[in-house]
């Protein structure tokens, strides 16, 4: 695999929250245009991995290379400006901003971002509720908003944390369609998921995270033979 196709590489990444050592040397690669999923039990360190990429944890050591740039020493906003769109687990919708203000908040990073019209075509509910207070939206709408918000900026690497959590099955299906559309558009996606059935058909590769380390790597075509192993480590 040559370096130009690598979009994100973590090497021996350690991260801390205060005194507690959460990531113990994570190594992973996400290639351009790939959709990679981090699977694992709660508390295994998947969310922390995403947060560590953006410098949202405490102290970090090791190496994080985003599109050829080492970012371990950079402040959060400069890392984001390299083209990362982050969709946090708690969705992070601002109550002091309207739906549309939430949507327009992140600065455009790249001219390739989707226009407001394209976004409203993809998420028609958001168009209807554009003047509502952000946190008055339903859970599903808030999740759509959190996704839409990072699509407008032109970020090429999407870090999506538990986007299917707590949503009705029909909305989860809609999200899966959206992820597929995004893959077609060439986005690079790192997905943290609890919902294996949601993630399995979407992901090109999966990493299993355990105790703050990568415990296994599974390719899409190995899914069937490794199903038993996955059930064991994930408890699904």
């Amino acid at each position: 695999m040559n370096a130009t196709t690598e979009y994100l590489r973590l090497r021996d990444l350690h991260a801390f929250y205060g005194e507690s050592h959460v990531l113990h040397g994570v190594n992973l690669v996400v290639n351009r245009g790939e959709c990679v999923t981090l699977l694992g039990r709660n508390g295994a360190g998947r969310t922390t991995t995403l947060r560590a990429i953006l410098g949202l944890t405490g102290r970090r050591t090791g190496s994080i290379v985003v599109n050829g740039t080492e970012v371990i020493g950079l402040p959060t906003h400069q890392i984001a400006r390299l083209g990362i769109g982050y969709c946090p687990e708690e969705r992070g919708i601002y109550s002091s901003l309207s739906c549309e203000e939430n949507l327009l908040l992140p600065p455009k990073l790249h001219s390739a971002g989707m226009s407001l019209d394209e976004i409203y075509t993809m998420f028609p509910n958001l168009a209807e509720r554009r003047h509502s207070q952000g946190t008055r939206l339903s859970g599903g709408e808030q999740q759509m908003l959190a996704m839409a918000r990072v699509l407008r900026t032109g970020a090429q690497l999407l870090l999506l944390d538990e986007i299917s959590e707590g949503l009705a099955p029909v909305i989860v299906q809609r999200l899966a369609q959206i992820i597929l559309q995004l893959k077609e558009k060439g986005f690079t996606i790192l997905l943290v998921e609890q919902n294996f059935r949601f993630a399995a058909p979407l992901a090109d590769r999966m990493y299993v995270v355990e105790h703050g380390q990568i415990a296994a790597e599974i390719h899409q075509n190995e899914l069937d033979e490794k199903r038993e192993f996955l059930q064991e480590v994930l408890g699904v």
Binding site: L54, L56, P75, T76, H77, A80, R81, Y86, P88, G92, Y94, S95, S96, L97, L105, P106, P107, L109, R149, T153
Partner: peptide
């Protein structure tokens, strides 16, 4: 004001 860390993660200084 509401969520400084996340706001910074959107690329805002």
């Amino acid at each position: 004001t509401e969520n400084p860390r996340l706001t910074q993660a959107f690329g805002i200084n």
